[in-house]
Write a protein that binds this DNA or RNA. Structure first.
Length: 491
RNA sequence: CGGGGUAUAGCACAGUCCGGUUAGUGUACCUGGUUUGGGACCAGGGGGUCGCAGGUUCGAAUCCUGCUACCCCGACCA
């Protein structure tokens, strides 16, 4: 990593890309804007998936799978939706290749043109609602609470590793309800699941809130979001939950017979989080030595590095290490023992710091003599020598403490970088010199938000769910406002 | 699509302005030895169509033309 780059550096994306690559998480692939997720990075994603999946099941959802390809005509059925996604779709037009007669290698066979083009899903509302039409006839068929783990493709003009790749992995929940109230309740329920996941597992504090009209999902009546603050003062939308009203039910003609025997359109929600969460995790916690992973999402929570000169020493150390590993595993702690002879201890120390392993244990001849072990924690970069008796419980407590400490650090950072302002001058000053969330009054009009965006690049990240009623004046127009909203520069 | 930049070993770069030995440095890699409590040291070794295609020239990584890819800044966005 270049020395002048730090986590506070203005060239944050460069620092981030360096870290991501060096931490062995991902790299850009041969295809523009898409990524290869390397094994260590994918292990983190699997941890996230596993936990989210548990939380979805706990809230009554089931997994299902829908097609990758969506007929083009499906997209035109919901006007706002097609408007939102038309500009960034990958389109399949042919189904066969052939050898070129002029010797130019393999070419697309013009004879194999598809009758109707297929869109590689940018999101699955359309294909799913097409399917739901066949699943729903009566109020007895509702609700439908499905989630899909899948990849989607959005042909973005500009991409950024993890945060905005052309192809990304995500989950998308799609639910169908008999009543408006039940659908709205579902929308809130899932944004709460996301917030709990972010805070309890990613150790990343988030603000729950409504998106403004300008930032709302294409086709939604309301979009709830969790917004996190990165260390460079920019905000990242980390998950969204949409109340879709009856828009998709009407577009795909999905009606059910209610208890009175009358036909009604179904109410819908959709919600999703993506591999962008990986980017959030990295950018929220990393320091100049590399990743800092919360213990609950680390592929392994503890690494043991033996320090030895001779093979006999390694044998003795390994015996001790095996005892410790057995004890730690009994407490549900994941451990890697790195007795590889290929690298020296110093190299391993640096490497596991880069990878963000929460706790590092080192055992050498000195420890064998004294009955001790060296314990280093990644979040504080501190280390101490402790007695080996009771080490298992000691590590368990330490992991809990690290999880909390990482969260508290991020929380403190966010509190220190959330600034209430009263005037537009103040707004611009804070935005330029301090960054972070800016809490300000807004008149509620899309025009005002657009003007502020044009002039400062800052957008309304959300209207917080817990915003207090408060008389005020819009910082831009001076019109009356009854609550503050959060502005920030965003990724 | 607009504006700027880059393309030379797995990676990071120098060399290009001002053409001229066998294209170089760091790192990584291979072999041997000494090392191992914070990214070791010594010695030896392998690895290059200098992005692609033309052109100028006795001679091109270097000059000219065209093309392509990537990066950064905008418009777009989970």
């Amino acid at each position: 990593m270049a020395k002048e780059l730090t986590s506070k550096s203005k060239n944050y994306s460069q620092w981030y890309n360096e870290l991501v690559v060096k931490a062995d998480l991902a790299e850009n692939s041969a295809v523009r804007g898409s990524m290869v997720i390397k094994p260590y990075g994918y292990a983190i994603w699997e941890k996230m998936q596993a936990q989210l999946d548990i939380m979805f099941k706990e809230t009554g959802h089931q997994n299902a799978y829908f097609p990758l390809f969506i007929p083009k005509s499906f997209f035109s059925k919901e006007a706002a939706h097609v408007e939102g996604f038309a500009k960034e779709c990958a389109v399949v037009t042919h189904y066969r290749l052939k050898n070129d007669e002029n010797g130019n290698g393999i070419v697309v066979d013009p004879a194999a043109k598809l009758e109707e083009e297929l869109i590689v899903r940018p999101t699955s509302e359309t294909i799913i609602w097409h399917t739901y039409k066949n699943w729903i006839q009566s109020w007895r068929d509702l609700p439908i609470l499905c989630n899909q783990w899948a990849n989607v493709v959005r042909w973005e003009m500009r991409t950024r590793l993890f945060l905005r790749t052309a192809e990304f992995l995500w989950q998308e929940g799609h639910t169908a309800h008999a009543t408006k109230a039940e659908a709205i309740e579902e929308t809130y329920k899932m944004v709460n699941v996301y917030a709990d996941f972010a805070e309890q597992f990613m150790a990343m504090p988030v603000i729950k809130g409504h998106k403004s009209e300008n930032e709302r999902f294409a086709g939604a009546l309301d979009t709830l979001t969790i917004e996190a603050l990165m260390q460079d003062g920019k905000a990242l939308q980390s998950g969204t939950s949409h109340f879709l009203g009856q828009n998709f039910a009407k577009a795909f003609d999905v009606q059910f017979a209610n208890k009175e025997g009358k036909l009604e359109h179904v109410w819908a929600t959709s919600w999703g989080v993506s591999t962008r969460l990986m980017g959030a995790l990295i950018m929220a916690h990393s320091d100049d030595n590399g990743l800092v992973l919360p213990p609950k999402l680390a592929p392994f929570q503890v690494v043991i590095v033996p320090i030895y000169r001779k093979d006999e020493q390694l044998t003795q150390i390994s015996e001790k290490a095996d005892e410790i590993i057995a004890k730690l595993k009994a407490l549900g702690i994941s451990v890697k023992y790195d007795d590889s002879d290929a690298k020296k201890p110093g190299w391993k120390f640096a490497e596991y710091e880069l990878k963000g392993v929460p706790v590092r244990l080192a055992i050498g001849p000195r420890d064998l003599e004294n009955g001790t072990i060296e314990v280093a924690r990644r979040d504080l970069l501190s280390k101490e020598v402790v007695n080996i008796d009771g080490i298992d419980q000691y590590i368990k407590d330490l992991l809990d403490d690290i999880q909390k400490t990482i969260y508290n650090k991020a929380y403190k950072f966010r509190e220190e970088h959330t600034t209430p302002v009263e005037t537009y001058e103040e707004f611009k000053e804070v935005l330029k010199n301090k960054g972070g969330f800016i809490s300000a009054h807004w008149d509620g009009s899309p025009e005002t938000e657009q003007k502020i965006k044009d002039e400062t690049k800052a957008t309304i990240r959300c209207i917080p769910l817990d915003a207090e009623e408060e008389e005020g004046k819009c910082i831009y127009s001076g019109q009356p406002s009854n609550k503050r909203v959060l502005f920030a520069l965003a990724y």
